[in-house]
Amino acid sequence: MTRTVFCRKYQQELEGLDKPPYPGPQGQDIFDNVSKQAWTEWQEHQTRLINEKHLVMTDPDARKYLKEQMQKFLSGGDFDQAEGYVPEGQ
């Protein structure tokens, strides 16, 4: 049986993640409150941000920036877009 959660981003019951995406309280919070769909979309968006903004993940400021953007994205708030990104088919 598929595990469901009330997704913080989409405000509806959706399929949940199979396991927390990383250890600790924040990973557990995501596991409990974020759908698999929202998490997958965040990972794709995160990749675009890293690539388009040339973020270096060893830089603490870049990691802090991504964490802030993740929180905004997963809560349905306003988040930064990757400049120059054009969705497929446009």
Rank of each mutant, 00 (worst) to 15 (best):
residue 86 V to I: 15
residue 9 K to R: 15
residue 22 Y to R: 09
residue 8 R to I: 06
residue 23 P to N: 14
residue 23 P to M: 13
residue 44 E to I: 03
residue 44 E to C: 02
residue 86 V to A: 13
residue 75 S to Q: 13
residue 81 Q to E: 11
residue 10 Y to V: 04
residue 19 K to W: 13
residue 58 T to E: 14
residue 7 C to W: 03
residue 87 P to R: 08
residue 65 Y to G: 01
residue 52 E to P: 00
residue 33 N to P: 05
residue 77 G to H: 12
residue 73 F to R: 00
residue 12 Q to G: 07
residue 71 Q to V: 14
residue 2 T to I: 15
residue 87 P to F: 09
residue 23 P to F: 14
residue 12 Q to V: 07
residue 22 Y to H: 13
residue 70 M to I: 02
residue 57 M to E: 06
residue 7 C to L: 06
residue 72 K to W: 08
residue 18 D to F: 08
residue 85 Y to S: 04
residue 20 P to F: 08
residue 2 T to W: 13
residue 69 Q to C: 07
residue 79 F to W: 13
residue 10 Y to W: 10
residue 43 Q to I: 11
residue 65 Y to N: 00
residue 10 Y to K: 03
residue 71 Q to K: 14
residue 31 F to A: 02
residue 78 D to H: 09
residue 12 Q to H: 07
residue 48 R to H: 11
residue 8 R to N: 12
residue 17 L to R: 05
residue 1 M to Q: 14
residue 1 M to P: 11
residue 42 W to Q: 00
residue 64 K to N: 13
residue 9 K to G: 02
residue 52 E to H: 12
residue 74 L to F: 04
residue 10 Y to A: 05
residue 19 K to V: 14
residue 82 A to N: 03
residue 82 A to S: 11
residue 58 T to W: 08
residue 82 A to T: 05
residue 23 P to W: 11
residue 82 A to I: 05
residue 86 V to K: 13
residue 12 Q to S: 10
residue 3 R to G: 06
residue 8 R to A: 10
residue 69 Q to R: 12
residue 7 C to E: 01
residue 50 I to L: 04
residue 34 V to M: 06
residue 72 K to N: 12
residue 71 Q to A: 15
residue 58 T to G: 13
residue 4 T to C: 08
residue 62 A to H: 07
